[in-house]
Nucleic acid binder design. Structure first.
Lengths: 167, 167
DNA sequence: GTAAGACCTCGAGTATGGTTGAGGTAAAGC
DNA sequence: GCTTTACCTCAACCATACTCGAGGTCTTAC
């Protein structure tokens, strides 16, 4: 793991600007992750005379939001798009951030609903002990297809292998 | 995409055994996916005289269970372990399947709880419009660290980038 | 001034969950 | 018998989200 130790250090040039290490330490992420986020357009920096990255404090909030959004299951590409709607010129306002969280809250709601539905169906099947081929809503939502005998069809074309729900 | 068309066809050799194509069609997955599952030990087959895979009907249930488990966010490795506890010798009983679904039901519960908690926190922050650096539970769960001014620390070391909860 | 530590770039590697394609064989339909 | 599907293997590739290492530069502490 990269340098993410915790002892306090002076800010880069004892000024407002944060170095990549500062940001990493304060956000609890690896330096390489910040590099990575930058390549993905999630955060931005400028360079000092020695070609080292410098950040405004703004980036702390951005990284925080990225991490929160990830917890809700939003993929980085979506987060990038959302963050891109933030103003570049001014420091984002509370209203700006609220807009983002409302958007993700909706996605989160949807995901919770889906999972709850799934749980309830699973419950039903635990109750009947079946996971029955012909009747189980988990296995045959539409209850069609299948010529000869039993047969489960069209399972989870909606499966969420990456845990994300499209926004 | 591989051959996953829907017109009915005779079963392999008009017998009980299913070909990989039969299984793919009836489960709504690609043939390559079945190959893949086999390399991961999730399903099993034997070969006919011409080196083609043959399956018992059992595999339909297995694939169904795999897809359901994936929807709950269980990674394939976990699913493999769970399926490995099924008897090889006899066809799994309702009790066998119930055991699996109970296990996953618990994981699902946990995930729903986590997401609901997150949503409620997000709600609070939408309410106050802040995503506040110092006070927000989303950003600073422990409310410690940070020497100079504001500062969000130790964010989501528990983040679920792949959407899965460890069982 | 010097040494340690932080930073730089770029390419490769990791893990998950598959898909695609090449080159060749088997089975089914007529 | 012949053609069309289906099937076989194996390697490579895709996307996501990072991490690691090599080789070299910059800053900071003393």
């Amino acid at each position: 793991m990269e340098s993410t130790n915790t002892r306090p250090r002076r800010l880069a040039a004892t000024k407002q600007a944060l170095s990549v290490g500062d940001v990493a330490r304060r956000c609890g992420v690896a330096v390489s992750t910040l590099h990575f986020y930058e390549t993905k357009g999630l955060i931005h920096s400028w360079r000092n005379a020695g070609n080292q990255r410098r950040y405004t404090r703004d980036v702390l909030r951005r990284v925080a939001v990225i991490k929160i959004a990830q917890r809700t299951g939003v993929p980085l590409a979506e987060i990038q798009q959302a963050l891109a709607t933030l103003p570049d010129s001014r420091t984002p306002t509370a209203a700006d951030w609220r807009r983002l969280s409302e958007r993700w809250r909706a996605a989160l709601d949807e995901r919770i609903t889906q999972l709850t539905l799934l749980r309830d169906q699973l419950d039903g099947c635990i109750g009947c002990g079946c996971l029955s081929l012909a009747q189980c809503p988990l296995r045959n939502p539409g209850d069609v297809l299948g010529g000869d005998g039993e047969g489960a069809q069209r399972l989870g074309s909606d499966h969420v292998s990456n845990g994300s729900t499209a926004l």
